[in-house]
Design a protein around this nucleic acid. Structure first.
Lengths: 260, 260
DNA sequence: GAATACTGTTCCGCTATGCGAACAAGCAGT
DNA sequence: ACTGCTTGTTCGCATAGCGGAACAGTATTC
């Protein structure tokens, strides 16, 4: 059941808006060209509804229509929607130079993100010279439960929110929930004991990374990760170099924010 | 009259969706925290309508509500909307290394963008070491008529689209239309004669830049600019270095795309 | 402390939108 | 060329959304 249906019975909830946004979310890298029928399949909405919503989004500049293929793709207008969001995360400006320095020093990728539903959304990404990792743009989505960044956030949110998220994650990860739950529990424990969490081949089998959360002054929780391909980043390097260095960097970010 | 009202009478146009998106667009850097009343003023919509739409956007994770201030701000979910858009501009991956190299060589900012309504939206931005310019993120909006990037696009679009845009720009720039029109006409002429356009203090009084358009294989028009603070970038440097170098870089991008 | 102003929410009658069914257009297979 | 399938659009009735008026809560002014 999509998010749009969850609160549909609430008289204040505007279903048309929710559905239009679900259409925009249906596009993803690897699927940037979709027809009305494909959108109907991906969203579960009837084709007449899709037809009207895609027409509206195209008129407004959020989708463009490729007449030759009979398909839609996101247009530049959707980028403008997110820009103010980035501007409201002041932590980005503070963190960016420190992230870039760490990325260069260790020749890894260092990213900052926050949670959206059951995923982490990249707010910033800095990369070392080697550039061996897939470069994920701002706006990229990665899983909450199996990545270092996601696990770091789960370790830092209030207990009530974590319980709520664990419940939703259990329903989301039906088949391998035991393994996912153990990874999260270990992360909460790791964070308590050593101040950082890790994902060692849990998300992508050849990616290792560590994560550290940060609770902002307004109580928003963000998280950093630092990692790369597992053939370059041994377990030892994670524990003796990346973890401690990231923890120190996040501590520096926190200190700078406290004096703004 | 907002875009949402333009096509409101069309039975296929979904007004609720259009209005919800107008709310998201109302947030901008410098105005990332807005209350329902402020949103009503900025969009021209009645307060009950705003109340329902902001409630819906908050439920879905596109806005978050700051109870202490009684205001809304964009949440991370809006970033996810735009990510597929970036992924569909393959030109970014092709152009980025060449842009980064040029930015480093000349110690300037080199950006790529495309049009959304009467603005250019940044798709990519690379910066030299000096970092003296305000770093504009992907998603940033700059004017169409007074920037090098915007003028480059106007110089390259089909005549019919340019006429349409000039008409809308005339209504948008009521008071200084003569000056704006002259800048656009000069840009079209410059592009024809020398392959690049310029903006010398026309957008921001202390920013000079040059621009070169690129028509992609699917006929989408994008544009590059290259520039920085005017005290570093003399007229001579624009014409003898930046313009020619940017034109060559864009030519290289075009050649690479032709062989993909 | 009272009055006023401002902002946000609720109500309800009217208008807009949703969607199953039907239809239309284009494509694939024979 | 014909038939069947797939995809997209149109129609009409039922339901959702809109917005003026009213109400509620909070802040400001006197």
């Amino acid at each position: 059941m999509s998010e749009a249906k969850k609160t549909e019975k609430n008289r204040n909830f505007v279903t048309a808006l929710a559905r239009g946004l679900e259409i925009l979310r249906a596009f993803e890298p690897g699927h940037t060209m979709l027809g009305n029928q494909e959108l109907a399949e991906r969203t579960g909405l009837p084709r007449p509804t899709i037809s009207r919503l895609t027409y509206t989004l195209t008129e407004l500049g959020y989708l463009s229509y490729n007449a030759r293929l009979g398909k839609y793709q996101p247009a530049a207008g959707v980028l403008a929607l997110g820009y103010a969001c980035l501007a409201s995360f002041g932590v980005r400006q503070v963190a960016r130079p420190l992230m870039q320095e760490l990325a260069r020093d260790l020749d890894v990728a260092v990213a900052l993100g926050t949670r959206d539903r059951l995923q982490m959304i990249y707010l910033e990404n800095c990369q070392g010279q080697g550039a061996l990792t897939l470069r994920l743009d701002v706006g990229s989505r990665i899983p909450l439960a199996t990545t270092a960044m996601g696990r770091a956030l789960l370790a830092a949110v209030p207990d009530e929110e974590r319980s709520y998220l664990l419940d939703r994650l259990r329903r989301h990860h039906k088949d391998d929930w035991e393994r996912v739950r153990e990874g999260i529990e270990k992360a909460v424990e790791d964070y308590r004991m050593q101040g950082y969490v890790s994902s060692r081949g849990d998300w992508s089998h050849d990616v290792n990374s560590v994560g550290v959360p940060l609770v902002l002054p307004d109580s928003t929780v963000v998280a950093f990760n630092c990692g790369g391909p597992s053939f370059l980043l041994s377990q030892q390097r994670l524990d003796e170099e990346l973890g401690p260095r990231l923890r120190t960097m996040v501590s520096d970010v926190r200190n700078i924010l406290a004096h703004v």
